[in-house]
Amino acid sequence: MSVRKVIDSCLGLFERGFPHEVSLFMWEQTATFDKIISRDELECAFEYEFPKLRSRIRENGGYFRMIPLVSFNAPEGRFLRYLVVVSFSAFRKAWGTRRVLPRQIWLYAAADAAMRNASKDNSGNFFFYATVDGSLFILVFFEGRLCHWSEESGFGDGLELLEIRLERFRRFLRTDPLFSRADSFEEFRLKGVFERRLFNDAAHDPFWRRIDLKKRTVTQITGAPRGLCWLALVLCLTVSLLCRWHLQNDSYDCVGCIDPPAEELLPPKEFHEVVFEDVVDEVPYARPVFEKCELPSFHLMGVVEHKVAVVMFDSLLGESSPLKEGMRVGRFALNSIERDRIQLGCGDSTAIVEVGGEAM
């Protein structure tokens, strides 16, 4: 274990987190393979896709944070997925110096414990769901890394509605450009209620340990080493000084040695750091404009067994194309296929197209 990891572990021992009521959901952006999305561009994209949500945040004095989850390449370009934390209330001074974290991260700790105790590692691909206080929580770990989090209300004791939603999400896993790369996902249902022990375990996990919702960035480690951590740091420095003194006073001197010429180092690659600021900042008009939620023109020819929608795009010169739930039409995602119509969504925008109808 490196010195850095030892110090990080020590920092986690002394940090205390405060559970805050927020909402979490995964948000996706696409870019070209050589494009680096800046903070301003992300804020513009969020403004375009969720205007109602951002207005509500402003009205209530709340905030949002975007935590990078995963980025990957696909034929359509580079996909970047973020975990968005939304709060409709402001920070309170009573929290003091404690870190502020989402209350529901106890589910993350419960999922982590379930993965560690699983009979097979399944290459780190796991699908967890839980119903807590009438809300459905879905967490997906791809190759051992959290890559999806969603929350939906309206799931009390209705097992039929729950199974319909889960089956729809399983189809999404099979068609998603990232999750479809996995052979299978081990499925678990998490049970229980909020526990401070699980919340503390999650707060010390490497994924959450660098996050404090009170901070404008998500990469800063809060707190300072104390106690045994200071002792470990002093011991490391002492050993380093002793080794250096020993080398300088070594009796084996080099006679007639010639120092090699210094090699020229290549200049470091440019590093782009994404810093997410508070939502209350106004978006200047000079910021780059992202593509709005525009739906390509097509005709819905028919629906096959509620599973496949046959559409004809005007741009394909009369050729029909099959679509399944989870697939995209422009920036819109196909959310549901019903008996005589389909429903698509893009941020706060929805579109319903009936059989025989045309989407404009």
Rank of each mutant, 00 (worst) to 15 (best):
P177V: 04
F172I: 06
D278C: 07
T222K: 01
L228S: 06
L266E: 11
H246I: 10
H272R: 12
D183K: 15
V279F: 08
F194C: 08
F172S: 06
L173R: 02
V274I: 13
L235E: 04
L166P: 00
E273M: 12
L233G: 01
C243I: 05
R226A: 12
S184R: 14
L162E: 03
Q220C: 04
I164G: 01
T217P: 00
R171D: 05
A202I: 02
E264W: 10
I164D: 14
K191F: 07
A203I: 07
E167I: 05
G158A: 11
E163F: 13
F207R: 04
D278N: 13
E270S: 09
V255L: 09
Q248C: 02
G256P: 01
F290E: 01
W245G: 00
H204N: 09
Q220A: 13
E187F: 04
L237A: 15
E195P: 02
R197S: 15
L247C: 03
L237V: 13
P225L: 15
T222A: 12
D253H: 11
F276T: 11
C236L: 03
F290A: 14
S184E: 08
N200L: 09
F179W: 15
P288C: 02
I258Y: 03
L235Q: 02
F188C: 10
F207Y: 12
W230R: 12
V283R: 14
L231K: 07
E264P: 02
F290D: 03
R226C: 07
V239T: 11
F276V: 14
R174V: 05
L265A: 12
R197P: 01
S180M: 06
V274M: 08
Q220S: 10
V274W: 02
N249L: 10
R189M: 13
E270M: 04
E270C: 01
R209M: 11
D205G: 03
K214W: 06
S240I: 00
G158F: 11
V218D: 02
F276D: 08
D278H: 13
L241T: 09
T219L: 06
A202Q: 02
R174Y: 04
L231P: 00
K191I: 04
F276Y: 03
R196S: 10
L161S: 13
P288K: 15
G227W: 11
L242D: 00
D201N: 09
A202C: 05
E167L: 08
L265Q: 12
K215N: 14
W245V: 06
R189V: 07
D201W: 10
F188K: 14
E264Q: 10
P260I: 04
R226V: 14
P267W: 08
R209D: 09
G256Q: 09
C236E: 10
L247G: 10
E167Q: 13
L242H: 00
C257W: 12
P177R: 09
S240N: 09
G256A: 04
G192D: 03
E270Q: 08
L173I: 02
R216M: 05
E264D: 11
H246D: 01
S251P: 13
T175C: 04
F194T: 06
E167Y: 07
A262P: 02
R170C: 10
D278E: 14
K215Y: 03
P225N: 05
E273N: 07
R170K: 15
L198F: 08
R216N: 07
D253F: 06
G227P: 06
Y285P: 02
